[in-house]
């Protein structure tokens, strides 16, 4: 098994599987975030956040998610360093004029670093406050879940206040666009690596990957922008 994961294809397999796992996480995350746009003073979003915070399955998945991030980042850096070495020290004096190679595919590390930098701010903004330090804006609020009044943390208030700062919204949009470009190559590439691709599926996966990437990118950024523009209390 170690010889499998230590081989070039094995290392790529780890990138692929962890990447696909992170893609699943993005889908869940965007779904919960979309509740932010329901104009009910944040009750649905708070219910969603409460469910995500208390659901036992999520507690199991959370460390797995962290592991997914760590593997994806570490192996991304490792592969890039190895590939630079394999490329050799000399560069072509006449440059690279190969047409038809996507910019994203050649800059996955740069895009990954953009996303990771955003992630640091994102975790400091929300995860640290919700899970570790707490925040006065998270004060309990009572909502009805299935007709039962339940005390939950007011996650909506924290999100809403965070998105009242223009600079934060700008950073979030940059992060989301970086993520979309990253996914525009990463999505199909993950399937290619596990071997689920051929002449026909390559076209399908590239189109599907681009659509998915921009749903994610536009989804996350539009929620932040709309929160800033239309959801702030006067």
């Amino acid at each position: 098994m170690s010889s499998t994961l230590g081989s070039s294809i094995g290392k790529k397999l780890l990138m692929s599987i962890s990447g696909l796992f992170l893609i699943l996480f993005l889908v869940v995350h965007l779904t919960v975030n979309s509740f932010l746009l329901v104009p009910d003073g944040g009750d649905l979003f708070n219910a969603g956040a409460h469910f995500m915070a208390t659901n036992p399955a999520v507690r199991v998945i959370e460390p797995l998610l962290a592991l997914g991030f760590i593997i994806h980042i570490l192996y991304g850096v490792k592969l890039t360093l190895e590939n630079r070495r394999a490329r050799g020290p000399e560069r072509y004096a006449s440059g690279k004029k190969t047409q038809g190679v996507s910019w994203a595919s050649q800059n996955m590390l740069v895009l990954g670093i953009t996303v990771a930098a955003f992630l640091v701010l994102h975790i400091a903004n929300f995860w640290v406050k919700m899970k570790i330090t707490g925040d006065p804006r998270l004060e309990h609020t009572t909502i009805e879940i299935g007709g039962v009044p339940t005390q939950v943390e007011n996650a909506y208030a924290l999100v809403n206040t965070t998105f009242s700062y223009l600079w934060i919204v700008v950073v979030y949009v940059i992060g989301a666009v970086g993520l979309a470009i990253h996914l525009s190559h990463g999505f199909w590439s993950a399937f290619q690596t596990i071997g689920f691709s051929n002449q026909l599926w390559r076209k399908r996966l590239t189109i599907l990957g681009n659509i998915f990437a921009w749903i994610i990118g536009v989804g996350f950024s539009s929620i932040a922008i709309l929160q800033y523009l239309f959801y702030q209390p006067n």
Binding site: A86, R87, T98, G100, S105
Partner: peptide, 14 residues
């Protein structure tokens, strides 16, 4: 010592 494929597709073009 060959590198790891990142599916850029430059090879196929050239």
């Amino acid at each position: 010592g060959f590198g790891n494929c990142t599916n850029t597709g430059a090879c196929e073009v050239e």
